[in-house]
Design a protein around this nucleic acid. Sequence first.
DNA 1: AACATTTATGTAAGCGCTTACAATTATTTT
DNA 2: AAAATAATTGTAAGCGCTTACATAAATGTT
Lengths: 334, 334
Amino acid sequence: MATIYQVSELAGVSLATVSRVINDNAIVSEKTKAKVLAAMKTLDYRPNSVAQSLASNRSNSVGILVSELHGAFYGSMMSDIELALREFGKHAIITAGHSDEKSEKEGVEFLISRSCDALILHLEAVSDQYLIDLKKRNVPFVTVNRYIPEIAENCIFLDNELGGYIATHYLLQQGHRDIAYIAGPLWKTDAKQRFNGHKKALKEFDVSFNQRLMYEGNFQEEGGQKAIQTLLETGIAFSAVACANDEMAAGAMSALREKGHNIPDDISVMGFDNLVFSRFTFPKLSTVNYPIALMGKTAANWVLNNLYTDRESHIQHIFKPELVVRDSVKKFNQ
Amino acid sequence: MATIYQVSELAGVSLATVSRVINDNAIVSEKTKAKVLAAMKTLDYRPNSVAQSLASNRSNSVGILVSELHGAFYGSMMSDIELALREFGKHAIITAGHSDEKSEKEGVEFLISRSCDALILHLEAVSDQYLIDLKKRNVPFVTVNRYIPEIAENCIFLDNELGGYIATHYLLQQGHRDIAYIAGPLWKTDAKQRFNGHKKALKEFDVSFNQRLMYEGNFQEEGGQKAIQTLLETGIAFSAVACANDEMAAGAMSALREKGHNIPDDISVMGFDNLVFSRFTFPKLSTVNYPIALMGKTAANWVLNNLYTDRESHIQHIFKPELVVRDSVKKFNQ
DNA sequence: AACATTTATGTAAGCGCTTACAATTATTTT
DNA sequence: AAAATAATTGTAAGCGCTTACATAAATGTT
């Protein structure tokens, strides 16, 4: 690889001048600029961005940490963030936290040590305090899907409890009273909040919550499957099942059909997240919309505005879930 | 952030010694090692990996380029690569190429300029020549899902034509003769090859290929939907439809049901890729397995072995697709 | 024409680290 | 115990770039 030095030599100018034309941040006469550009071209010169980062203490890249690299939810989030960054000529450095405290911390440290200009973090296992401390370390960052009052400015999140409430409320409204619930891992804040929303809705309709109609899943298809198996074994009848996310809803639908239940005629199913595939399940999944793509974009814009431009931006921090009615829930005639 | 200099000062040793304990690559007495470690701890020192990369010309990170950051296929691939790398303490830097020549080149250049030690590339729009030239540039890389004879050593790929053949062959075997085909964008090599496999199978069974029963989709759910719409409009009857990937199969199934067709009794559907969700569609999708996770892992191991360890490794370059029989194809009684 | 401005370019000191090579100290050998 | 050898540690030169500061060239002013 050619270096800036070779370019300067070929062009017959100094290092500094070459640097100036690379960054286009100082006046260089048209004539020398042309010479430099030509030299860069003949040498097929590409600035070494590691050296640029070290010297300038900026990397023009932002670090992204998600729990998993697979999964429609994270995919959506990453994709929209990357798109927004790319539009500004910035790059994404992505890593996975695997919902594990050690991994998550490692990931964050890795991104910091890479001189990312800012971080967009989807953290689950790490403590609030860690993030509060992170702020003190002067690393610009924004968290997605997490609200920490002490650093509210850095949080972009969904009202998960409201979402859980909306889902079950809809079921209740349709006349369902015996409602099973497939939760996410309850140590995860969002899973917990969605579950709380569920219970809140039940309470509002004076339906008592039955612990045995609740299963703690893993947010994956296969968890939904297992949940149904367990739930059916209890022998307790239910006319609807609310799932803490769409993946588990897909697994649940599959398992229900396997057991000979018709959806939604025998049993209704409600999802959460409104992932792309939920429009293509059978029956089409009624769910709660999580505007993750929009939130990812918002996160990216926050970063872009705070870091690379001067204009102060007021961004939306809290997002509202919305009911998405499709075909997986039946109007129940009592 | 503390620097290595401050650590050396606090520990009362030289920079070099601190560097040695960081990298653990030279003999340092237990005593001084302890002093240094203590100093690092009290200063909460983290090596600046940008500086490390610049000085050592290695970054302990490998660059990954996929077409999109969303999508189950890429998710699977990224996820397994990341896992394999992490086990070795290496990191992934991921970027998207968006199936666009300019973007893909930019992405590759970005990764190179980041001093990635090696690249794992899923490239679609770029020419073979570009990759051949890339090899000359001495950047260790491996391409996934692409075979270029001139650089066969660097290719890890699936026999896509065989896959296309297997899918349609299975349909034919089940007695289907009127088979529609939903292709991927035919400028993409894999889409083209799968399509060729389809035609090959037809030929083998002396079934003439009907251009009007073919639709060129976009590899997405929505493309499958549109395909069915178009295909049905032709008025030409078909008892089965082979799709070039699972996403389009999901869209196709959804659209077929919408039009009142029963799957598989009226019309059978065949997918390709065997993505996770294909086990949870209704009916469960019969498809062709693409061992993308395994291939991702293989790619990661190739990189790891070639770069960071000494042992020569013989890795598998070509992978075979396999038939996955589930419930979306009917045995057709002629 | 002498001086003040403005514009364009060069000089050189880092950024935080790695790594030959040199220097020092400890351990063996005879 | 001196010499030889091995084990530690230090010195200093980069890695490829940015950027304050200094200098030189071009233009304008009176």
